[in-house]
Design a protein around this nucleic acid. Sequence first.
DNA 1: AGTAAACTCCGGAAGC
DNA 2: TGCTTCCGGAGTTTAC
Length: 272
Amino acid sequence: MPELPEVETIAVELRQALIGVVIKDVVIRRTDFIRTKPRNLAARLRGKKIKTIEREGKRLQVKLAGDLECVIHLGMSGRVTLENPGSPLLPHTHVRIRFARFRKELRFRDPRRFGGLWFFDGRNGSARPLSRLGPDALSIRVPVLRAACKRRRQMKALLLDQQVISGLGNIYCDEALFGAKIHPLCLASDLTEPQVRNLACNIRKTLRNAIDSGGSTLRDFVNTDGSEGVFQKIHRVYGREGQPCPRCQTPIERIQCAGRSTHVCPCCQPWG
DNA sequence: AGTAAACTCCGGAAGC
DNA sequence: TGCTTCCGGAGTTTAC
């Protein structure tokens, strides 16, 4: 499940490899994986240089020469990889991008197809069917969070809303709320000023920590049972139902919040 | 109006 | 072994 830390790691790696690289051609194996595109996309991509690669929330934004732009969203099961052109195509590889004078090709896999690619130019750019993103969670500031918390809404539901704050998914919501000792079902409008400050700090810290350990840990575990190892290393409540809270040893509980499975320490995160 | 819940997409994984 | 059920990011729809 690529969340902000994974997307950030991917952005760094793609940037190192692909800035200044020129596209040779694009193989679209599933047309509906391309969610929006200008006319004659394939022809327009040919020969275009990659200018910038940025992360915005859980999305990747790739800017190309000639006012072309690509937004990548990985959804639940999306993977983007640089591979040798000859290596076997894994199932659900929907798009391949090959380059001039760069040996590897970029592949997009996504079994569940919750993700996708959006291409824009000056003409379709104004009507993007992508929602506007709130301020980035990795650098969320107290005044912004304070303003968001004026609403009478369950705290976790608010944090999951990408239009309020962008980048937090199910896992890091639980982790940040645990860090701040705030119950996910708390009304945002009931938070005290110290709680807001603490939460802002914990959102940044949780994500930064995941990026820092993810960068090395993810790589160490590639092609092994990697996700498991990383999981146990950095998550304190997520996926730990029944296991002792790392702070107070009380068993972690799993509840439902905003339709998502939610992990909480009933002792550290009192409700009401 | 603002919030919440249900529904949609889909296939992997878990459970029976 | 083979079926059914659950799960979820995010947009849309529906209801309170």
